[in-house]
Nucleic acid binder design. Structure first.
Lengths: 254, 254
DNA sequence: GTTGGCGCTTTCGAATTACGAAACGTCTGA
DNA sequence: TCAGACGTTTCGTAATTCGAAAGCGCCAAC
């Protein structure tokens, strides 16, 4: 919890965070206790926030976030540039893992590589050209996007692409791919074990925006001999959350 | 500008509004002057808001809305029920105009009536059944939705429906309809002069949400003999803005 | 029906907190 | 190089927020 020059604003911010952190509306007492405030102080601050529309009260008088936040949220400048926000995070990740880090977005039935951070600590490394593309079903990042698809969406993808094999490891059976994608999404990371290119493996985590939809993915690509998902996943997920948060995703704040 | 029990929060809210009202980032001095604050006060408050992410600064130090608002905006409970929010506004409108007020949403190539407020001051009145449907091109509300369509979208609508005539007044020429729809959207209201049913005319205004897209429309339907658009439009637009604002649209706040 | 208790709201004197004048720093353009 | 404007920091002052306590209003239990 950050501390600033103005006490009331710190307290108001804390209260808003507490309300946001709950999935339901919250009674005064709970907010006061959790924020460490005297009930009358919490009341006064919440009343003020209410008159400005940052907070609303339901029939029972419990507090929830107000529409004003919806209005202001919609006005946040889209100076939110995925690549600019991603670069420092990717570079930090590269310096921890000493492998190539990629940032990808989805475009139709393909993923597109939009940014990368390569390490110079390795003689042998995997390098994707920025702008290059790959089908969803052969990449770790693509599995995350597919995991978010509806059954119909998944089926039409399978139909349109035929789930062409790129290597002997490519998953070409629709039902196997489907369950793999769903499992990946639930685990919040996906793996590609030489499914796109022999000898190359990959781990990916999702990047979400304020709407909680996946808008991109961060992945690490390396020769299979150095593939260490257990080690990488926590680092990747931390980076993914940090970038997501910068894009407006509400989760653990960095 | 509302006044609450806490001065700092009032001032912070004013500053956030000023930043939101501008399309670009804003320098301190402008904010201080417009908010009627001493520069050092504005600075202190903005610094506090910045540490909490409600405000960000660009390279030149100018202020803009922060990502926190995006996060919190995404967490506002979708307790935003179009119909519930609309009802009191529609009833007030009915009591001003003494005519039937309708609330409609788009569903594919049709509009659907989802709520209405009927007056008992009139022997003869127009009544739409809730749940009933009509093609876009014969209704005032539909023209607003069509006005927001891309050229391709409009063309495929024209192709799919054939712009069937319902009355001799129905606009069936695609180019005439297209320009009528665009004109309506620009004017922020649309008119239907017996284009759906002989003897019945209609005026509609758009309802937008935080994304600024049209999500619904409010309209007044009456026998053509009582049709007085010049009189109705200001009332309708005020109601439309008020409802839009409740849905998170940023505009003139009620 | 009455009473007790709990949570919310309001009041009000105290002192902490935010205020703003002024001094300081920094950048830009003349 | 200097002038001026804008942003930042400092600091004494007093206005402002704080929080204890009392007052409501509601529900549940007796």
């Amino acid at each position: 919890m950050p501390k600033s020059a103005i006490q009331v604003i710190d307290r108001a911010a804390t209260l808003l965070d507490l309300i946001a952190a709950s999935d339901k509306s919250v009674p005064l007492k709970v907010l006061a206790i959790d924020a460490g405030l005297h009930p009358s102080s919490a009341f006064r601050i919440l009343a003020s926030l209410t008159t400005h529309g940052y907070v609303e009260r339901d029939e029972a008088g419990r507090y929830q976030l107000g529409r004003k936040l919806l209005q202001l949220g919609g006005r946040v400048q889209a100076h939110v540039s995925l690549r600019e926000d991603a670069r420092p995070i990717m570079e930090a990740l590269r310096d921890s893992l000493h492998e190539t880090i990629n940032l990808t977005v989805r475009d139709g039935n393909e993923v597109v590589y939009v940014e990368r951070a390569i390490t110079n600590k390795r003689m042998m490394r995997v390098e994707q050209v920025i702008g290059s593309r790959a089908p969803l079903h052969v990449t770790a990042v693509g599995k995350l996007f597919l995991g978010e698809e509806s059954d119909q969406g998944f089926e039409s993808y399978a139909r349109e692409t035929g789930l062409t094999a790129f290597t002997p490891h490519t998953i070409t059976r629709a039902d196997a791919l489907r369950s793999e994608c769903i499992k990946s999404l639930e685990a919040e990371y996906a793996v590609d074990s030489e499914e796109a290119e022999p000898g190359v493996s990959c781990v990916a985590v999702p990047v979400r925006d304020h709407s909680r939809r996946i808008v991109a993915a961060i992945s690490v690509s390396a020769p299979t001999s150095r593939h260490e998902p257990e080690d990488w996943v926590p680092h990747l997920q931390k980076a993914g959350l940090e970038l997501s948060s910068r894009l407006g995703y509400y989760g653990v704040n960095p």
